[in-house]
Nucleic acid binder design. Structure first.
Lengths: 305, 305
DNA sequence: AAAATCCATATGTTTTGAGTATGAAGTATG
DNA sequence: CATACTTCATACTCAAAACATATGGATTTT
């Protein structure tokens, strides 16, 4: 069976044109080198060297073999390089998922664009889905990592790394009396007791919906639910149309489907929208590790926003 | 040190996704396979497999390595193929030399064109030179094989394989009285005793020149030499101009610089032009061997022409 | 809960690659 | 022309490493 040792030895002998000199270069004695060359010729099935009284030279077949042996070694070297770069996360593919709601938070675009700049040789695949689908994809390996709110169910071997707890804001129709104050002036949650709430409810499981209900309860009232919208954007459209108020993560403020007023909330300490980085810590690819690093480095500059 | 064994084992495990099954496929036990995989991962410097309770799967780095490992093996396989084809003489390069005088003999173009047809993947380099240069080139390895008349000096390790002895013809000017008979009707050499001879003389060494002188001597006269031309074609031009007669190998009959009459020669048994195939038998390339075969096969149909 | 699956580790055996000594063939040199 | 030298090949020994057998640990299946 031909081994790389044979190729290394062959190349040395071919380059030196001299078995003894090649053996010195290889750091072995001359006889084993002669033996290995002989074994190689036997495996190939044809002489590769012409033995002269003063050194050796390549046969035609040997010349062709030298070319191929070098190509083989070069292919392997490249492979090792690329493999190590991939392991270090400097090369390869990375599939990142996120929900539509977190995509508006600055940490997501900031991390991804910095990652792109730092590791341009990693080809990024971005996917926006609902949390449940992200978790499935993560578990099945179609996704390496995801940004999301608290998922309904956590598959085994999946880690939720809490990134930050985002403040939540009240979204008021422009005509609403409470919309008058400045955006930084908080509203007591209890003052919304008589309002109709438009809430985004994800299919199955807890999440922001429950957080909001719980916050209202502990503020002393049970919110009247007017409509449950399937998408965050739809929720805000309904608010803009004056059908009710809503409570949304602060980063969603950027969406403005027509004159919505956003106000901070006072007296509701648990009313936050957590943001998690989600991945399988046991089977981290290098590229994934690098993204986690980047996200953690971006965090201090953005936390709380 | 990474060896091909590692690549072969790695590919098997990657393809099976299963160490035990791969070990069966490879015909070895499972523990050594685990060890070799571990050694490979250590050499590469990064894990290539993720160990699951029910088999193994590739890491990102492993996926990249699989690609490269396959490419490496493929490169080697191609190399072995090409090397063996080269050894068999089905591929590669072949440098063939010949003198201007033998190029007219049918054996040369016939052999070369048949060789071209049989071994189209061998790229042919044809070179026309004087015999001495051919011998130098042959000895130096710039030429694999040559067609020539008897060379002045034979370098060591060079074999002259006699192909055939070519008849020699008298070349007469068109106006010459002896030119009247049919070409197949031989002339006694002695009848040329009073003629002026135009002879082709190669720089240094014996050859056709001496053969002709010797034949005249044994026919009973010493030829009067009118001029020694440096090239065969020049010789015939001088004959055509009526400056004398000449004696040339039969195959040169094809050259006709204006109405030369060619006649066979009688009573001169030694008056032949030998044609040799010349090569170094100790360092024959496959391609050279094949050409020798082809020439030998062409010989029966052409001998004596 | 027990059995089964599968990879990893531990230990012994065999293969084989490498070292030392020597020979054969050819070349250079006195 | 004989001797010394160079270089590759062969013979034999040793050591490393590849492989086999036995066993353990983790996880899943029955």
């Amino acid at each position: 069976m031909i081994e790389l040792r044979h190729l290394r030895y062959f190349i040395a002998v071919a380059e030196e044109g001299h078995v003894t000199r090649a053996s010195e270069r290889l750091g072995i004695a001359q006889p084993p080198l002669s033996q290995q060359i002989k074994a190689l010729e036997e495996a190939v099935g044809t002489p590769l060297f012409i033995r002269h009284p003063r050194g050796v030279s390549l046969t035609d077949a040997g010349t062709r073999f030298l070319e191929g042996a070098r190509a083989t070694m070069a292919t392997l070297e490249e492979t090792l390089d690329a493999t190590r770069r991939t392991a270090r996360g400097e090369q390869g593919r990375l599939a990142v998922g996120f929900t539509s709601s977190v995509a508006f938070h600055a940490i997501v675009p900031a991390s991804i664009s910095r990652y792109r700049r730092l590791y341009p040789q990693v080809s990024l695949a971005l996917e926006e889905s609902i949390t449940a689908d992200l978790m499935d994809a993560l578990f099945a390996g179609r996704l390496d990592i995801a940004f999301a709110r608290l998922p309904p169910e956590i598959p085994p071997h999946v880690r939720l790394e809490p990134l930050l707890d985002e403040e939540m804001l009240v979204a008021l129709p422009p005509s609403h009396p409470l919309a008058a104050g400045g955006p930084e002036e908080p509203i007591e949650l209890l003052r919304l007791a008589e309002e109709t709430f438009i809430l985004y409810r994800r299919p199955s499981g807890p999440g922001l919906y429950d957080t909001i209900i719980a916050a209202c309860r502990s503020a002393g009232f049970s919110p009247r639910i007017g409509q449950e919208a399937p998408r965050m954007l739809a929720t805000l459209s309904l608010v803009a149309s004056g059908l009710g108020v809503s409570i949304i993560p602060a980063s969603m403020r950027r969406i403005d489907p027509g004159g919505i007023a956003y106000r901070r909330v006072a007296g509701a300490p648990g009313l936050v929208a957590p943001l998690y980085l989600i991945y399988q810590p046991d089977t981290l690819s290098g590229a994934t590790r690098r993204l986690i690093e980047v996200v953690r480095e971006e965090l201090p500059g953005l936390a709380g926003h």
